[in-house]
Design a protein around this nucleic acid. Sequence first.
DNA 1: AAGATTTGTAAGTGCAACGGTTACATTCTG
DNA 2: CAGAATGTAACCGTTGCACTTACAAATCTT
Lengths: 147, 147
Amino acid sequence: MQISSRFTIALHIFTCVDVFKDEYKVTSEFLAGSINTNPVIIRKILSQLKNAGLITVARGTGGIKLTRELSEITFFDVYEAIGAVENGDLFHFHDSPNPQCPVGRNIHALLDGKLKAIQGAMEDEMRKYTLLDLRSGMTEFLAEENK
Amino acid sequence: MQISSRFTIALHIFTCVDVFKDEYKVTSEFLAGSINTNPVIIRKILSQLKNAGLITVARGTGGIKLTRELSEITFFDVYEAIGAVENGDLFHFHDSPNPQCPVGRNIHALLDGKLKAIQGAMEDEMRKYTLLDLRSGMTEFLAEENK
DNA sequence: AAGATTTGTAAGTGCAACGGTTACATTCTG
DNA sequence: CAGAATGTAACCGTTGCACTTACAAATCTT
């Protein structure tokens, strides 16, 4: 299993919004064009980002605005907003191990801390990258193209 | 999305094999009892662990043996054996972003390294835990129960 | 050699999430 | 009001997961 493409799509959206904000009206239609998917998919993701308080979306007129600086939004914020992982648990624990079995009734408590540490390592790394990193990286790529 | 319960089941299996190896014949049936699932599920997972070279399984007579010391098998080895993540990629990248769009044609290259770093942080943490840690943790839990 | 036990595997079921799509009400601007 | 955009509900097809039944292949015991 993989973490939903909604996560990478969200990052793609943020990049587009900033890159094109002065040049085009960045609507769900426009974004769907760059991402090559359906506008409704985009709107659903925008909805999640809005509910998480990362952006505002203007109805009718269209237009997406960040509520914070690019440097103040990390990959982790986006990952959380998207709900990329059910109940916040990366690992799916098999339910109801046999309580009659000594191993069965203790395995959950035993594994829990270690699995949390593993997931935590991933999430901590996610906190290191901001949307500003993404934006400046894209600027470099585009400059390279225009050489 | 979550990482398949086959991963936690595999860890459960390893724990049982070691805890019960002198006391019972540890068959797929026996394991299914502790884990509370179907023997065929267990056999499939055993098959993957075997293909990865972590264990040998005796047909007919039953019996599971590790090919290395408990301390020589990490959570990462198990995770890899199980194929918990498609193509080895934790993140699902939306396919075919629009190559006509400057962002679309560069987003993949831009994100790739960062996503790999995030996945790498998780996998490195996985390498820190061995089956021996699991075994000794279980021993402690059981000692606690018998107090 | 026969019978019992166990693994290996194919085939099929039900379910849930994902990505996609159509359709339409709602909201805002001009 | 007309036009443009978002918000959502409803539905589809596909895929992977967990589970189950069934049976062939391998191995041990007697």
